[in-house]
């Protein structure tokens, strides 16, 4: 029933470790020669200052796309806390209301055959996104439509300094010019196939599977 396994729980964990490091590198200004130790020290110094990349009221924040993107964002925040001693806030975003396949836009108007109604999940972003460097986190990127919807939703909530896009699985077959900045794994898929990221917070197993 689970299809073919693409990633085990251990693969997921290792990939998250790597992506957490990539997030820190992405938002860290040019590291002066001298290497790792100096950079960490700089990060720690910045952690307490409002100007820092991990500062209060601005700096880095993660926004997970409901549902599993939220769990991934929480895990990434935890890993950055362990590695850098910095607290990166996490928000949850549901982009359903910005989708292009909901309501009249998703079907013929007045015919009763409009787009699918989807259950709306919580949006809870407990910080002002204006001026922040955001990393949007989702489990799978496919057509790019969810990413587009999430970006539009974010833009209506404020004016972030930058938005980066992180996904666990890039399965290709894009329909919009949306591209992740950090990718866990790239997989070639066919349109009829389904990719499932399963996480212990939400599911009874952990890993990535593909149904053919």
């Amino acid at each position: 029933m689970p299809g073919t396994r693409l990633m085990s729980a251990r693969d997921l964990g290792r990939t998250l470790d790597r992506m957490a490091r990539q997030i820190v590198e992405l938002i860290t200004p040019d590291v002066p020669a001298g290497g790792e130790e100096l950079r960490n020290e700089e990060l720690r110094n910045n952690a307490g200052s409002p100007e820092g990349r991990f500062g209060e009221g601005r700096g880095l924040a993660l926004v997970g796309v409901q549902r599993r993107g939220v769990h991934l964002a929480r895990r990434l925040s935890g890993k950055i806390r362990e590695a850098e001693g910095a607290e990166v806030p996490v928000g949850a975003l549901d982009a359903t209301l910005y989708r292009d396949d909901v309501g009249a836009a998703g079907g013929a108007s007045g015919s009763g055959a409009a787009g699918a109604i989807r259950a709306i999940r919580a949006t809870r972003i407990p910080f002002d996104i204006t001026g922040r460097d955001l990393v949007l986190v989702d489990d799978v990127i496919y057509t790019g439509r969810t990413g587009r919807a999430a970006l539009d939703a974010l833009m209506d909530m404020g004016r972030p300094a930058s938005v980066r896009f992180l996904v666990m699985i890039d399965r290709g077959l894009r329909e919009l010019p949306i591209r992740p900045d950090i990718t866990g794994r790239t997989v070639s898929t066919l349109a009829g196939e389904r990719v499932h990221v399963r996480l212990s917070e939400e599911d009874d197993r952990e890993g990535v599977w593909i149904d053919h």
């Binding site: 359903t96 209301l97 909901v102 836009a105 709306i120 999940r121 949006t123 209506d156």
Partner: peptide, 22 residues
Amino acid sequence: TARRFREVLERPIPQVPTLRGT
């Protein structure tokens, strides 16, 4: 669903494009 919309009404822009064209 109404609880979700209560949150929408508290956003800086308390409007979503969901039913554009309806």
